[in-house]
């Protein structure tokens, strides 16, 4: 059985700050990480492989050339192979164009089960998983919190909804999107990292995908950025620089005045 795990390299958003003058995000020097929901998906696949060594895991990412390092790391964690789809002609893609590109690549690589993270922390769309499933004509289960059982032709998982959890069974092949927090990703040791260089990351470009240029990248993206802007400063904003005691007193008196303190 072959499991494909889709991953994305993202900036570590907890370290991003805002430049007050320009209102833009300061990304310089911010480390790149594997998107957390994707890392949970990889760990879930590795746990399935732990239980059944016949399982092969292929990790696939689309992104700039520097994402290769992240993919090498997934091999060190235990993936059998990894592919980076990278090409300037594929740049600027929205989820519609990205899912076309991924689907074309996945058809080449082959799969019995596809696991993607629910959403990436730099885009937060949660659309690439379902859209890739649609383009491959596969069933999908999103917001997966636990993989319960994997058989040759079906998989049973737990899906987390707002107020309930569902135990769902899907035919294979299918696409799952996983939630960070469903497991605790394993650490790599030094030997794994050194050994991983025996298995180089495969590179795929536009030319490998049998797609028309008009359906990929910016040109193939129906959503366009119309404007970007920074948030207006609230007119009612007031900042105080007082002693801790004065701060506490002013907050308490304000809350009392607004009837937010009740007896």
């Amino acid at each position: 059985m072959k499991i494909i795990v889709l991953v994305k390299q993202v900036p570590d958003s907890t370290e991003i700050t805002v430049d007050k003058k320009t209102g833009t995000l300061v990304r310089d020097g911010v480390p790149s990480i594997i998107n957390p929901d994707d890392l949970a998906g990889l760990e879930a696949a590795l746990e399935l492989k732990d239980a059944n060594p016949d399982i092969k895991i292929a990790v696939v990412s689309m992104g700039p050339p520097q994402a290769k390092g992240m993919l090498q790391e997934t091999i060190a964690r235990g993936a059998d192979e990894a592919y980076l789809i990278t090409d300037r002609r594929l740049g600027g893609a929205d989820t519609c164009a990205t899912s076309r590109t991924l689907a074309a690549a996945l058809k080449k690589i082959g799969y019995d089960l596809i696991i993607a993270g629910r959403q990436a922390i730099d885009g937060d769309t949660a659309q690439v998983g379902p859209q890739t499933a649609e383009r491959l004509g596969l069933p999908q289960i999103t917001y997966v919190d636990e993989i319960i059982e994997l058989n040759a032709d079906k998989i049973t998982v737990k899906k987390a909804l707002e107020e309930e959890e569902q135990i769902l069974t899907s035919k294979l092949p299918c696409v799952l999107t996983t939630l960070s927090g469903m497991n605790k990703p394993r650490y790599m040791n030094c030997n794994d990292i050194v050994d991983s260089f025996d298995k180089p990351v495969g590179i795929m470009t536009f030319d490998d995908l049998d797609l028309d240029l008009s359906v990929v990248g910016l040109a193939g993206s129906p959503t366009k950025v119309h404007a970007t802007f920074t948030k207006d400063v609230s007119a009612e904003t007031k900042t105080y620089d007082l002693s801790a005691q004065e701060t506490a007193e002013l907050i308490a008196s304000t809350l009392k005045e607004k009837q937010l303190i009740t007896k």
């Binding site: 900036p11 958003s13 991003i16 805002v18 209102g23 833009t24 995000l25 922390i121 730099d122 885009g123 950025v225 119309h226 404007a227 970007t228 802007f229 920074t230 948030k231």
Partner: peptide, 8 residues
């Protein structure tokens, strides 16, 4: 996160 705070 595309460089600015909000995108339309």
């Amino acid at each position: 996160f595309g460089g600015n705070l909000f995108g339309t």
